[in-house]
Amino acid sequence: MAWLRANWFLALAHAGAWLPLGVLLWDVARGALSVNPIQDITFRTGKFALLMLMLSLACTPVNTLTGFRPVLPMRKWFGLYAFLYAALHFLVFSVLDFGLDWGLIQREIVEKRYILAGLAALLILIPLAITSTKGWQRRLGKTWKRLHRFVYLAGVLVILHYIWLVKADVREPALWGGALAILLVLRIPRVRMAVSAWRRRASAAKAGPALGSSTGEAK
């Protein structure tokens, strides 16, 4: 119980990350998918992979904005969940949908630029998932940080993947793209410093009046 009170955010975040998979399996088991079930599973795993990747990218900005530290360890886990859902998404595409017919798959990849973008994003996520452990972080030193910056490129590729696959209405992928842009902008060192300076000022101002009244300072 004490552990849960101390780690409620981690517990909630992990449960939340597994929930979509649980619901999906439950829907498969009770036959609640549409008459085009493979497409349903493809769409859902893809959407969850995108969501997890965005959550992973949101951890640092959320900490910058709010100072809430428990999000930081989730950056790695959301990244791994993103890889899990992306890998499922790819397996559904290649095994369930195309029955591992490499001729057909190759043709799809060449003809559909959105598949190329999605595949590139998945290929980026593979080394990032493998080197996500503390051991690899130590071994790679400075290279680790450079390597893991490729996740930003993966984010951009995933948005392109989404924009290129919708029929005509690009509003939803555009919204995700906008969110990604905000998350990336908040990482620019200058912006980040400005934001944390603003946050410190804001929290000082909140604490200010109480202190002010006792010390008599107007600032």
Partner: peptide, 29 residues
Amino acid sequence: YGFYANVNPDVPHPRWSQATERRIGELGR
């Protein structure tokens, strides 16, 4: 989307291939 929109596996849509299809009620393509 053009005016004709004839089903044609050899003319990919600018975004996606039209070489295969999934028949509703069947698995695979």
